[in-house]
Design a protein around this nucleic acid. Structure first.
Length: 271
DNA sequence: CCGACAACCTGACGGC
DNA sequence: TGCCGTCAGGTTGTCG
């Protein structure tokens, strides 16, 4: 499920449940996801008050009044279920609050993980150290991209998926942003012109904001016990649409590169 | 630097 | 109905 917009929507959905609440119970129902849960997870979080919810790239942040932040990553299939009636086999971590709310981190494929880190030095959390700028922040500009992509021969699509270049884009929204900017995904990154990079920055923002907005509009549904979130049944322009017509009259193509499907319109996305 | 691939897992879906 | 192959939003590491 989760790229940046889904994580952002998740965080917004968790905020009214968690912010200001005290965690009365913390239970890991298995030892690990992709990695082991921190051994002191329960001890550190039980009794703590949640002071803030946040996001960095595709990571969710749950800050507590104990100087510790719980970091979660949803991997491919992770989601938080709110006030579930019953717990299923994939509900791996359960939080209860003093307001008698219950949250279950559900992750069938277990590619996600949960970690703890001191709030004051979050920037030193190893997975955060090399992250590039937030795509919705002011640091992401055409000038920045031009600098970091200069001379690079790798396809622009691969560069955008590299979290060190921009932090938070995944396969779906990279395809969508390149389509919106009318840039061919296979174009050498260092050869995309400055005006096109400017268009790309705008497209990235527009695509992400639209998805977050779509997620926001289903936030009411987010609280359903099934936790259904998905990609907001949003209709993508190219992703998953191989063989279907583009608005230009061309046909959407699909090609696999290093195991990931790329969708694009060869007719109107030019290099 | 670059591309390809495997690994980590389960579930959904299409074809037969 | 069921079995089997294929594919899926991410990250990390290795190899050539």
């Amino acid at each position: 499920m989760p790229e940046l917009p889904e994580v952002e929507t998740t965080v917004r959905g968790l905020r009214p449940v968690l912010e200001g609440a005290r965690l009365s119970a913390v239970e890991a129902r298995r030892a690990d996801l992709r990695r082991a849960f921190p051994a002191d997870l329960r001890q550190r979080l039980t009794g703590a008050r949640v002071t803030a919810l946040g996001r960095r790239a595709k990571y969710g942040l749950v800050e507590t009044d104990r100087g510790t932040t719980m970091i979660f990553h949803l991997g491919m299939s992770g989601r938080w279920r709110v006030d579930p009636d019953t717990l299923g086999p994939h509900d791996h971590l359960v939080l209860e609050t003093d307001a008698a709310r219950r949250l279950a981190l559900n992750d069938a494929r277990r590619f996600g993980f949960v970690d703890l880190w001191p709030t004051e030095s979050l920037a030193d959390y190893p997975p955060f150290r090399a992250l590039g700028p937030e795509p919705l922040g002011e640091e992401l500009t055409a000038a920045y991209l031009a600098g970091v992509l200069a001379g690079r021969l790798a396809p622009i699509k691969a560069m955008l998926l590299d979290q060190r270049i921009v932090a938070g884009l995944g396969n779906i929204y990279v395809c969508e942003a390149l389509y919106t900017a009318r840039i061919a995904p296979g174009r050498a990154a260092g050869q995309v012109s400055k005006p096109r990079l400017a268009r790309l920055v705008e497209a990235i923002r527009a695509v992400l904001l639209e998805a977050i907005e779509a997620g926001g509009s289903t936030l009411r549904d987010y609280a359903r016990p099934d936790g259904e979130l998905g990609y907001f049944s949003k209709r993508f322009q190219v992703y998953g649409r191989e063989g279907q017509p583009c608005s230009c009259g061309g046909l959407i193509a699909r090609k696999v590169h290093s195991g990931r499907s790329t969708f694009w319109c060869p007719a109107c996305q030019r290099s």
